[in-house]
Amino acid sequence: MIKDLILMNGYGVYVWSSFIITLFTCVAVYLKTLKTLKKYEKEFASEIEKLSVEKKKIVLKNSKIAPQVLSSYNKTL
């Protein structure tokens, strides 16, 4: 049965190659997107660390997004 699934009456090469190409590109694009996202999160976090204590307070108080970015960055650590 597994042999049938792989060979698919001679069409196996075509069917499997098209599914594998699709899956492979999808995974590659996902990983690349994730990497860029993590990179920007990290840069954002280090930018905030560089600020002085008062400025940091102001940013975290005024911006809704800054704390959210920091928390999602910390979650993945």
């Binding site: 698919m8 009456n9 069409y11 098209s18 599914f19």
Partner: peptide
């Protein structure tokens, strides 16, 4: 035959 399965990604 089975080549129709390519349709499901194409």
């Amino acid at each position: 035959g089975d080549s129709v399965r390519i349709m499901y990604v194409h």
